[in-house]
Design a protein around this nucleic acid. Sequence first.
DNA 1: ATCATATGTACAATATAGCGGACAAAAACA
DNA 2: TGTTTTTGTCCGCTATATTGTACATATGAT
Lengths: 261, 261
Amino acid sequence: MDAVQDEAAGKRARGLDRAFEILDFLRQKRQALKPNEIAAQIGAPRSSVYELVNLLLSNGILEFTGGEGRVYLGRKLYFLGAAYENHFDFTRECEAALEQLADETRETAQFCMLDGNKYTVVRMREGARPFRISTDIGQSVPIPWTASGRLLVAHLSDQDILNFIPPQDFRLPGGEWLEPQTFIAEVRQAEREGLFTFNSIVDSFTHCFAVPVRVEEGHAAATLCLVTPRDDGIANRGRYLDCLKKAAAGLEHAPARPRRG
Amino acid sequence: MDAVQDEAAGKRARGLDRAFEILDFLRQKRQALKPNEIAAQIGAPRSSVYELVNLLLSNGILEFTGGEGRVYLGRKLYFLGAAYENHFDFTRECEAALEQLADETRETAQFCMLDGNKYTVVRMREGARPFRISTDIGQSVPIPWTASGRLLVAHLSDQDILNFIPPQDFRLPGGEWLEPQTFIAEVRQAEREGLFTFNSIVDSFTHCFAVPVRVEEGHAAATLCLVTPRDDGIANRGRYLDCLKKAAAGLEHAPARPRRG
DNA sequence: ATCATATGTACAATATAGCGGACAAAAACA
DNA sequence: TGTTTTTGTCCGCTATATTGTACATATGAT
C-alpha cells in the first residue's frame, strides 16, 4: 500500500528490499553494471551488494553480461514477467488499440501505467510523421509531469495522493514548483471529464492527450495517450479525443482477465 | 553456478531464496493463491510466508488478485522482464524465425531455453494442421524429457551435467528410468551432429526435432524445435532439419545484443 | 617510482529476520 | 448446535544476515 523503504537512517536494510532496489536500479540504468558501481550509486554497503548480487546470480535473477564482472537483469525475470503478462492478458488488446490509434491519427500513441509511485510508458507506437516523437519505454517518470498522471491517481483521496507521490516529484524538470493543490485540482478535473490534455511540461513542443482505461472497480488502471506537435494537437483536439475514447472503450470491453494455463 | 537451495534439512531459509521460491511456485501454478496455500504447498513456515508475501506486495512484486486475499505475480515483475527482453533483444528475430518455420513446415515450432536447471518453452507458433500440437509456454520440464535438453547442456562436462540435473529428473513421465550415462551419450551425439531428434518420451504420437541457437562462446543458448506427428516427422526429416538449421542460422546472425535505451 | 582509485574477498559483531507456537476469527462441516 | 479446518495475526527466541572494516590486487595518474 505505502512505498516506505528507507524510513529512517542508520537502520539495517532488509535483504529483500535491497535486492529489489538493485533490480530497479539496473532497470532504470538499462545497462549492465559492476557490483561496485551499483553499491556506490545506490548508496548501499559494498559487502551487502556483493553478497546479494551473488545470491541473485545463482538464482538466475541477475546474469553476467557485458564482461568485467558486470551484471544485468536475468532470464528468470523474463519468465516471471511473461507469466504476469499471460495472466493479465492485456498485451494483445493493447497492441491492437495502439495500432488503431496510430492508423487514425498518425501520431505517437502510448499505453501507460503506474510503476509503484511513478508513471511509466508500457507500450508505444510511434507516429508516422517525418519527425517522430518518442519516449523511452519503461522509464520511471514523476507522476505530476504527465497528463496520464492526473488520471492514474484519480481514485485516491486528496490526502492519499499527497502521501503517495514523493514531494520532490512536484518539482518540474524545468525547476518550477507545481503546487500540490494545483495538481489535485487538475486530477479532479480530469476525473470529472474523463480525460486530460495539456502542453507537455517535460518539453516545449508537444501536446499530450490522455484518457483512462478503467477496470471493473471503476478506477483507471492505465491510460491511452497521444503525444503530438502542439499545433497539430490543438487543431485536431476533438477528433483525437474521439479516437482515444473509442480505443479505450475497446480495451475495456476485453479487460485484464485471467486466462487458462 | 550451482542450484543448491534446500541443501540440508533443519536449516533456516534465506528470505530472498524463499521469496523467489514463492514467485516460481506461483508461476508454475499459473494462478493466484492464498498465502496459506502457498505455505502448505511449498512446505514453508506459514509465518514466514505471510511476512514475505506482505513484503512482496508492498514492493509491487506480488499483487492481490482473484479475491479472498489471493496473490499472484505483480506488475513490477512485468516491468523487470520487459527490461530484460529489451536488453537482450531476441524477441523480434525469434518471432520471425518461428513464423518462417511455421510457414515452411506447417508444424508447431518452438523456441526453448533453460530456466535454471529445467527446460522451458519460451515462445511457440502452433502448426497449421487440423489437430494442432501445442504445449504450455513457460512450464518447467525436466531436461532429460526433451530433445532440446540434449543440446542445452552440451557445453557442460559429463560431471557438470550430472551435478546440474536433479537426479529425479531422469525418471521419465511414464515411470521408466533413463540411465544418466545413456542421456550423456545422447548429449555428446547431439553435440557432434548439431541436432537431436527422437520420438517424444512425453507422449506417444509426436516426433521432436531440435537444433541449437549458438552464441559467440559457442554453446547453445537456446534451441529451435519442431514438434510433429510421428509419421510426418519421419517422412520429412531431411527437409525439416534443413528448415530448422536455416532458421537457427538467421537467429545467430542477429545474436542477443544490447540495445541503446 | 609513488600515490590514489577501483575492484573483489574475508571475517567478526550484533541487529534482526525467520521460525515455531499460541491465539482468535471465520468458514466448513456434522 | 458443536466440531474441525482454514485463515490470518502476534510474539519471543535464536540462528544468521547485514554491515563495517581490513586486506589484496589491479589499474591509472603523477
